[in-house]
Design a protein around this nucleic acid. Structure first.
Lengths: 154, 154
DNA sequence: CCCATTTTGTTGACGCGTCACCTACATTAA
DNA sequence: TTAATGTAGGTGACGCGTCAACAAAATGGG
């Protein structure tokens, strides 16, 4: 008897497949929506949300930790957003290496325009599909998986 | 009173956030795993799985529908996989426009090597985090969201 | 038979994410 | 005070995904 079998049971495989398909379709549709009706990428959106929620001015590494990305990803992202005028960089007096990322007026305007539409799509495609209890259950399951992953290597 | 409020309730927002974070971390880790221990991208993996599950030879458009991608994405993907020797293209006698995508011997070997490791990571990071009932519930919720999305425009 | 439409599949440009590597400043201990 | 190490952040190459446009073959009326 194997400690861990090579394959999943058919129930496990079916559950995994359903989850993957749902998640892919949902994320795909939402990010295309954001792009289509605001001109921003999903990454622009999330960065601006987090940044403006926290006062619109933040150290680069704090932003990295907040969004839970790799710093190189964020560096490229901030570069593109700077080019588009959504944020600017300011240097940090206390730390010669440091940088502040600051949301511009255009950045605020972009996120304020985009957010209600995005929320509406989230509601329409996701929230409305589920009962209060189901949503609650999904949150619990998600947190459980998150907690489990943190204990695992890699 | 608004028919649809502008924002989510704090419970809804928290649930959405948990789901998004879980899904991002999980998919991210799994696709980096596949890449790291087989040299294939997650896209290579899924295409080879679907293709070899269906006899290893398939019309391009059937593959597109099976994987549920856009054809242009698949076209690029098949191009890259051809370059790496995982699949080849054969022309179709019945339909002058048509193409068969065929898994090569190297393609079969690649997926046979990669699959057990991938399944092990899925089990380790995801399946093992949940009870049988929780997994079952998640599958039901996923299918419900999928069904709901299909009724929605866009 | 012929023209319009649909289907099959490709292409090129462009933005995004990862990986490996790198620079510069800060910190700490000898 | 200087050498080692850690931390902040950037860079370039490369593969991936989307969008819009395209070519060529099939199909279905009239």
């Amino acid at each position: 008897m194997d400690a861990t079998p090579r394959w999943l049971t058919s129930e496990q495989a079916a559950a995994w497949d359903s989850f993957i398909r749902m998640q892919e379709k949902l994320i795909g549709r939402l990010s295309r929506q954001v792009q289509a009706d605001s001109g921003m990428s999903a990454s622009d959106y999330i960065v601006l949300v987090k940044l403006t929620e926290t006062g619109g001015r933040m150290r680069f590494m704090d932003l990295v930790k907040l969004v839970e990305w790799e710093k190189s990803r964020m560096s490229h992202q901030v570069g593109r957003m700077t080019k588009r005028g959504l944020v600017t960089k300011e240097e940090c007096p206390d730390d010669g290496r440091g940088a502040f990322i600051v949301a511009t007026t255009a950045g605020y305007k972009a996120i304020e325009d985009a957010a209600p539409k995005h929320v509406e799509h989230v509601r329409r495609l996701f929230i409305n599909a589920l009962t209060h209890e189901e949503l609650d259950t999904l949150a619990r399951i998600s947190n459980r998986v998150l907690a489990h992953m943190e204990k695992q290597p890699d």
